[in-house]
Every structure is written in structure tokens, then in C-alpha cells.
Design a protein around this nucleic acid. Structure first.
Length: 206
DNA sequence: GGGTTGATGTTC
DNA sequence: AACATCAACCCG
């Protein structure tokens, strides 16, 4: 019933990514239980945006824990993350999949899909389903300042969590920093893909 | 089912 | 140039 507060995000990025599984993401008339997350650490993690993007480091510096970090990827999809700051390890957590709870009709309309499992079973899909856009970059998801109808509702009962390697990255590929609700049909792709060196590129290079 | 590929734009 | 993706398409 209770919404998460700022202190939830003043912890270790791995702890928070784990504990977000089972939390209900409530977003302007729609909601879903978080079933798939990935942790990205500000320090010593080459896959994190802070490793390559000055703008990401600025974001961490200038925002409070629990703030939404939203960015555009592959020219087509918005991805929704939450800022962890002020605890053991700062970082960003990618919300990768939801088990849809409310606002299903609206999600179906936005996604142009009918099957429940196709609404929010991926980070690009869930942003589309909920109507998350670049304009939401920087909105607080905890505290009084959060937008009307938005928040993160604590689980009513504990959820079993399993780990995996992160998906779709080419750096730090073997960190087991993906967290999944065990046996939940709404998770994103089944397992992380380990990118092997492409021989063609290696041999065609001068 | 699984593997492959094209669509698309921002950041550095 | 790379990219924290997706859906359509092939093949079987």
C-alpha cells in the first residue's frame, strides 16, 4: 500500500535493483509490478552511461535519489531508469519489464498489442505502454514533488528473485547484475547475450 | 521455435 | 560509430 520513499534509493545500487522486484510502478492511470531490472554502477562499470557520457555524470550529481533517468535508444525507444545515490554504491537501475496491473486498455492502445505478455515485457515496450517520454527525464518518483498519479508501491508480499547477466551491452558483459522475478511470464528476453568478437571485423581491419 | 535483419536518432 | 531495442521475417 505504502509508496517507497527517498531512503529506499539511498542504498547500494545492487540492493535496490534486487528490492525493486515486486514493487508496483504506478504511472498516470497505468501500473505494473516490476519483474525485471538491471543495475548500472556509477563507478567501475564500463556499461554504465556515466562511463562514457558526461551528461549522465552531471545527472547523478544534480539529482536526488529516486529521480527518473529517461533516455532515447536505438533511435526509437525511451528507456526508464531510477537514480540510486547516497549509499554504498551510486548508480542507475533500468526497469526492464512489468507485470501489468491497471490501465490495461490504455496500454493495449499505445502498444497496438492485445496479449498481456506483449505489453510491458521489455524496457522499450513498457515505456511505450505507460506513455513515458523524454519530457519525463528528471521527474522525482519519491517524495511530495512526484507527479500526480505516479509512484512506486511497496510489495504486499515477498517475491522470489533470481539473477542473470545484463542484456544488450558490450562492456562488463559478465556482471550478474540483472534481477528477475522467478518464473514470471512477463520478463524480457530470456537471458543475457554474450557478444563474441566478430571475426569478419577483426580480419577486415587494417 | 530460433536466428537474422532493418528501422530509427542522439550522443560523443 | 556505437547504441541498456523491437518486430517482422526467414527457416525449419
Amino acid at each position: 500500500m505504502a509508496f517507497l520513499t527517498r531512503d529506499f534509493f539511498e542504498s547500494d545500487v545492487l540492493t535496490v535493483a534486487h528490492d525493486l522486484i515486486g514493487v508496483e510502478l504506478v504511472w498516470q492511470g497505468c501500473s505494473g509490478i516490476i519483474v525485471d531490472t538491471e543495475a548500472y554502477a556509477v563507478e567501475n562499470d564500463l556499461a554504465c552511461h556515466t562511463a562514457t557520457r558526461p551528461s549522465a555524470r552531471e545527472f547523478v550529481k544534480n539529482n536526488e535519489p529516486g529521480t527518473a533517468y529517461v533516455y532515447f535508444n536505438y533511435g526509437m525507444y525511451w528507456l526508464f531508469n531510477l537514480l540510486v545515490k547516497g549509499g554504498e554504491r551510486d548508480g542507475l537501475i533500468l526497469i526492464r519489464a512489468l507485470d501489468p496491473q491497471s490501465g490495461i486498455a490504455e496500454m493495449r492502445q499505445r502498444r497496438q498489442k492485445q496479449k498481456l505478455q506483449e505489453l510491458c515485457s521489455g524496457p522499450g515496450k513498457l515505456a511505450l505502454a505507460l506513455g513515458i517520454l523524454g519530457q519525463h527525464h528528471g521527474v522525482p518518483m519519491v517524495g511530495r514533488a512526484k507527479p500526480k498519479g505516479c509512484g512506486l508501491r511497496a510489495p504486499s508480499e515477498p517475491v522470489e528473485v533470481v539473477t542473470d547477466i545484463r542484456v544488450g551491452i558490450s562492456q562488463a558483459v559478465d556482471f550478474p547484475w540483472r534481477f528477475l522475478a522467478r518464473d514470471n511470464p512477463h520478463v524480457s528476453v530470456k537471458h543475457g547475450r554474450v557478444k563474441l568478437p566478430i571475426l569478419k571485423n577483426a580480419t577486415t581491419k587494417e
